[in-house]
Design a protein around this nucleic acid. Structure first.
Lengths: 147, 147
DNA sequence: CTAACTGTTACTTGTATAATTACAGATAAG
DNA sequence: CTTATCTGTAATTATACAAGTAACAGTTAG
């Protein structure tokens, strides 16, 4: 699971929170705590998927297009992070006389693939709206605490 | 999921395949295609968990202690890779006036934790023996092919 | 025209990880 | 006793990848 997924989810939650569902890349970058160029890159992928729309020029920004209660983390993951839990490093292949060496790469590839699929079943159950709720609860908790 | 998990699983499958359930770090390193010092480091963790035993000196090596049919990938994951699917990079925290910025780190931490738990349910169903079977099947497939 | 935005590429910097070296300790065999 | 073969461990080096950032082009409104 990569940081681009994190940026995207954070960005979508911020858009969902905004009254007009809109924010500029600078605003998003400030909330996320990263550079706006990075935000633009990530949000560009989401735009391509139709999850958000963009308005260029004066008064522009990114606009959430879907219903936060219907946007799942699995959907975001598929766009930005698919395969990211799989290590890039592979074992085996060095010893042609050892069947384990010869075949473990393929066997592990399947393990990783199936594991990622299972992981998606959780992400399929969590929506952007859920996360916004959690943010609000945490914020209410913070406010209560400071009283 | 990190490469140490991969090294460990590969090593365990090789031990399970061996008639005496034993192999030296050099042998393992050759099969895995890495340096023996790295193998020793990883196997050291498995030894601490009781999954394997070691014999030092002449005629030494690593010995599989459990039943391959009862060693799950989840067990290996817990020892070596716990938390490895979580990005080290965190978003938010830069804008104290933005509740999303302030709380998203904690919210995402919980998402990652729950996602990893769900992932473990798959790893709990796969054993070292399963993987060895797959290696054997793949090897049989290869042999058939070359006829 | 200028300013405010998105979009994109390329470069720089930082971080994490894999490879490797070096050596100590344990054990068996001669 | 010495030597060889193993495990165990720390440190250093090399490599890969990812995050940060600069730079600029294109789009749009005033």
């Amino acid at each position: 699971m990569n940081s681009e997924f994190t940026v995207a989810v954070h960005g979508l939650v911020l858009l969902a929170q905004r009254p007009d569902r809109m924010a500029t890349s600078d605003m998003l970058a400030c909330s996320v705590n990263t550079h706006s160029a990075r935000v633009r890159r990530v949000m560009g992928w989401l735009k391509k998927s139709g999850m958000i729309a963009t308005k260029e020029g004066i008064g522009g920004g990114y606009v959430l297009m879907g219903d936060p209660e219907e946007i799942t983390l699995a959907h975001v993951y598929r766009i930005l992070a698919m395969g990211s839990v799989v290590p890039s490093w592979k074992s085996g292949g060095a010893d042609p006389d050892c069947v384990v060496s010869t075949h473990m790469e393929d066997v592990m590839s399947e393990v990783f693939r199936d594991t990622e699929m299972q992981m998606m079943t959780h992400l399929d159950r969590v929506t952007i709206a859920d996360l916004l709720d959690q943010v609000k609860k945490a914020a209410d908790g913070s406010n209560t605490k400071s009283r």
